[in-house]
Design a protein around this nucleic acid. Structure first.
Lengths: 255, 255
DNA sequence: TCTGTCCCTTTGTCCGACAAAGTTAAGTCG
DNA sequence: CGACTTAACTTTGTCGGACAAAGGGACAGA
């Protein structure tokens, strides 16, 4: 027979976790703003009354979570978590869960179409300028698969940015990080792949500029279907994301 | 005048980071499988030849990244990162970036429709059973806004799960974690909100069972539009996600 | 203005230590 | 022989102190 609940569960988190939680709370509720200094480890030792080792463990937790960073001089300050850094955690998780390229493809189809729709509706002149700049750079490296793949990834980041929807921007990132690295392989393997890719980008920019939603969706579809056709020449869509992609993702993350 | 780049930047990562990277690499490339023990801190001290404090800092990094956990007896072992834990990091980031409810709404509309489409196409009997169970529980707590909101959140997680697309599952989670907590407020404020919510769920399950894509999309739209109408009675869609939501998200994360 | 120097602070790392909690093994009792 | 208790050992979380390397600031000299 259960006794009446006389006591609330006690919070028995280790000290380093409490330190991390306390600092996180101040950042999240806005008392510490992004860019504000956190103070030195010694300051925190004094404030929390725990050992420096304990403080340092707490700092690692927050650092990994992207809430605080060390600037050039290694001083601590709060910061806005970077989408791409957080997304790389998710990409890593997707790899470990051994998701298939089919899942990536399907999800990306949804997310990229939503991005282009948002971009068509709300892209600013600045967004268009960035896209145009990207296109110019892409045309210049159309013969270089590695650099073209990089441009392609950036292009779609810019489209998502142009959608002015940061939730969408964030949601598409993990899939994109795994999805687009394959572009290099595909462009390498399929002769007309590079030019087709650049042409699709051109049509997409054009659609955004003309606020032509239909065209935007259509070319996004084609663009992704191109990817798919190219991929299926190399492997089955039902292959799970290979561990090798992590090498790429890690390299990207460190930038 | 910039000098020609004669040297590449040297990799001078601190020791704790190298420790974390080394262990991460073994996990990601599959040499350490989820569930495998990592060894004690003392073991790692011996293997890496660094101090225990250093090892512990590295461990914190991996722990926060969700790659390793401590089991009941606090021993370290590798594990598959949990979507909901990672997603809560992203939710936190979205709050800090002060995204608006309009962004959440638009992104969720896309993601939930994609989920239901996948569910309609691929839901298993087991998925349907889970959904039916959730519906029954929802009906039982229709008068309790807090519990109903919780059921609603779970319902949509189950729909995403039924889509059999883990990328989608992951992509929708951050938005959902911020989106659905408001449900409680809405159900509290709008008298017929609870019953309408449950009715929508019933129609959605029905659509999945009948493999009726049209109906699924339609009822997802209605369901979200209901949320929107309810929300707009309380606040503007252009309000940014309040810091108060973090309290909720944090509570969820700890579970 | 640029450079080199001295001093102070801060970080990254190391060492050693200890209490609390968990694990293992031995010993005891029914 | 099996279940329970106890004692010994291990591991984690935390602490205190220590030190080299690197950064920042102030200051003098070219």
């Amino acid at each position: 027979m259960p006794v009446a609940p006389l006591f609330r569960p006690i919070d028995v988190a280790p000290a380093y976790q409490k330190v991390a939680d306390a600092i996180e709370r101040e950042i999240v509720n806005g008392r510490i703003k992004p860019g504000d200094p956190i103070g030195t480890e010694h300051d925190l030792v004094r404030q929390f009354g725990v050992n420096r080792s304990t403080i340092r463990e707490g700092i690692r937790v927050l650092e990994e979570g992207g809430l605080i960073r060390r600037d050039s001089s290694r001083r601590l300050h709060a910061c806005l978590p970077r989408y791409s850094k957080l997304a790389s955690r998710l990409s890593r998780a997707l790899v470990l869960h051994e998701v298939t390229f089919r899942e990536l493809y399907e999800a990306s189809m949804t997310l990229e179409i939503a991005s282009i729709e948002g971009a068509v509706e709300r892209a600013s002149e600045e967004n268009l300028a960035e896209l145009a700049d990207n296109l110019a750079r892409s045309e210049a490296v159309v013969g270089n698969p590695a650099m073209l793949a990089e441009c392609d990834a950036e292009f779609h980041v810019l489209v998502a940015k142009a959608s002015q929807n940061r939730v969408l921007q964030l949601a598409r990132e993990p899939a994109a990080q795994l999805f687009y690295p394959t572009t290099e392989m595909i462009v390498t393997g399929v002769a007309e792949g590079g030019p087709r890719l650049v042409a699709a980008h051109r049509h997409l920019i054009d659609a955004i500029r003309r606020r032509d939603r239909e065209a935007g969706v259509l070319w996004t579809r084609r663009h992704l279907q191109d990817w798919r056709r190219g991929f299926e020449k190399i492997a089955s869509l039902d292959r799970s994301v290979e561990h090798m992609y992590m090498e790429h993702a890690q390299a990207v993350r460190r930038r």
